[in-house]
């Protein structure tokens, strides 16, 4: 390689590395803003701002979903295994909403144990299988059967 090309190569690589580091640092600094939602752990620890518009995400706790018979009001707990709080919502939930499922809710945090949601989105995991396989796994008591909404830590 002649020296002119070598110089150009070094220059291009230097630009790439420099920009890479700059973007990396920016990503690191804005980490909290880039995260789509706060985790239950952060909410319980008081890291999430009270009264502000924000999103929270977590797994719906088994057996915690309480629906009002007359209205569309629904309340359920969400958790990430390190903390949990109750989400209140009024409206139609997405098809994939179920107990054990990961969800993202958009709304306001009233206190560290109560979140008023205006919008509930279902997060789905990266597992795909036919229903028969899921049934078989469930019957066999395989731990994979409960992967309905594995939480992405």
């Amino acid at each position: 390689m002649n020296s002119v090309r070598k110089q150009r190569l070094i220059l291009v690589l230097a630009v790439l590395v420099g920009l890479g580091i700059a973007v990396g640092l920016m990503f690191y600094a804005l980490r909290q803003n880039i995260n789509l939602f706060y985790t239950p752990q952060q909410v319980v620890a008081g890291e999430a701002p009270l009264g502000a518009q924000m999103r929270v995400g977590g797994l719906v706790v088994d057996g915690s979903v309480k629906r009002n018979e007359e209205t569309l009001d629904v309340a359920f707990d969400i958790t990430d295994g390190k903390g949990s709080f109750t989400v209140h919502y009024q409206g139609i939930l997405p098809d994939l909403f179920r107990e054990g499922q990961g969800i993202v809710a958009n709304g306001t945090l009233i206190s560290t144990s109560r979140f008023e949601a205006e919008e509930v989105l279902a997060k789905h995991d990266e597992t795909y299988m036919p229903p028969e396989v899921q049934d078989a796994l469930e019957k066999a008591g395989h731990p994979g059967a409960k992967k309905g909404g594995e939480y992405n830590e």
């Binding site: 880039i34 789509l36 939602f37 995400g57 990266e126 597992t127 795909y128 299988m129 036919p130 396989v133």
Partner: peptide, 19 residues
Amino acid sequence: VQTLHQGSTLKLFGESTIN
């Protein structure tokens, strides 16, 4: 970071989580 989009299903190393 935390995203609404799920993680990768097909993995170059390790088992893919798709039937």
